[in-house]
Design a protein around this nucleic acid. Structure first.
Lengths: 242, 242
DNA sequence: TCTTTTTTTGAATTATGTTCAAGAACGGAG
DNA sequence: CTCCGTTCTTGAACATAATTCAAAAAAAGA
């Protein structure tokens, strides 16, 4: 009898409903005002029922983050499958991030909070691990591309592990996300399009790490064309406005 | 009569006492367990008195952050005064950060939290502004060094504003601080000394941005020597362990 | 020394996250 | 179909911790 499975499916649906409701509330009232009682009320379940799914409010928040990370990873996976020179594929990570920010504008703001000691520690250990598990493929793909580059002779690691090369790229990207999503910090800089700037700096870093072929970062048209091309070729999207 | 001034001084001292007590509690019990009542108890004032100084718990947290930023800025200011080639001075920012992390190991963990929407928004507008004001000199010094480099002919901006060049460097540094202080994220990478890695990637980025003279990042001895030299020459410190 | 103003105090209030006893729904046995 | 045990759901009650504010104390001024 499929009773057990049907029940399982229903529970899954309910969990998804709770999460979507939480997302809506965050969008409309801000993370600061997210309340368990409000989520319960809005999706017409008792507060206690929420705790059937999540050990705590922080646990719920981490699950939201995890789902975003999975979506993010799906974008990155397209780069793993893309047949293109390694340098274009590794650069594609920045383009994927631009697209992801457009699709999930709240993600980095929320994840900045979720990864803070205070929130992270307050979630269950199992949930934390599941977030880390969701992130692992992203790192793996980046490392894979670096290795491909080495194999293709377009990058010389000179003894540095591929993971450490990635960490530099990752730091640049994460740092820019952080700066962008931290209120008031970017303001004095008056940058029209911070993510385009991120792309440019990423190219500079790749140049500095010795990736072949060299890319002329002062050639705005070439950079825009590359971004545009990756958008359409890998993600079937127009790049237009952020 | 100096009564007014004496009173002002006493209030300042009390505020400092409260902040130091909060710092100790964070160190010993973690940010998660910081409670206003505990702070009050430990420094032998009533809870209400804390609210004479800080509009909220978050306000207090931002003031702690602000004080750290001021200390950080003092380190960076030494680079502004240091007479050395621009490339060494801009690189010094990474060394200053290494030193600052050693002196205030809790800072970046705390500031990651403080700059989150949830905490940031819950503090008073005045306090937020004071934090931004404390950060301004750091950016100004970095921009100044970039301009010096251009003036000295060791960097060609090719039309990019100096602020935007800095933002790339800043993103790399901020990103690495974040990765280091986010539990579990660095673990799979097994990096022995992430801040040394940050230094290396910063040099790669400077190379990629075209800073002269070129620095060979695969020359470990040269990198260590430079870090060591900045430690002693600019900060009167040994670099040794982090 | 008395009056007024300012400051301090901490018990009471408020806001929310979390629990758990009571009852409803379900599933299987007879 | 009905009974009985099990599992799930409910939301009022509880627990915690931030914040307030009326009363008391201290300071300033006359």
């Amino acid at each position: 009898m499929g009773t057990r499975e049907r029940r399982q499916r229903e529970l899954g649906n309910r969990e998804q409903l709770i999460l979507e409701t939480a997302r809506e509330l965050i969008r409309s009232e801000g993370l600061l005002n997210l309340q368990m009682a409000r989520i319960a009320e809005k999706c017409e379940y008792a507060v206690g029922t929420l705790y059937q799914h999540f050990a705590s409010k922080e646990d719920l928040l981490l699950e939201l983050t995890r789902q975003d990370v999975v979506e993010h990873a799906e974008l990155i996976e397209r780069l793993a499958r893309w047949r293109a020179p390694p340098r274009e594929r590794i650069f594609g990570i920045a383009v994927a991030d631009m697209l992801f920010v457009r699709r999930s504008p709240d993600h980095f703001r929320m994840s900045q909070y979720a990864f803070c000691e205070v929130v992270w520690t307050a979630a269950s250990a199992a949930r934390r691990q599941s977030v880390l598990d969701a992130e692992a493929p992203i790192a793996a793909i980046a490392v894979g591309i670096v290795n491909d580059a080495v194999a293709a002779g377009s990058l010389d690691l000179r003894g540095m592990p591929a993971e450490q090369v990635c960490l530099g790229l990752w730091a640049l990207v994460v740092g820019m996300h952080n700066l962008v999503h931290t209120e008031g910090v970017m303001h004095p800089f008056a940058v029209p399009d911070p993510y385009r700037l991120m792309c440019r700096h990423l190219q500079s870093l790749l140049n500095g790490q010795g990736w072949q072929p060299y890319f002329d970062v002062s050639d705005d048209a070439a950079l825009d064309a590359l971004i545009q091309r990756i958008f359409t070729e890998v993600f079937d999207e127009q790049c237009c406005e952020v």
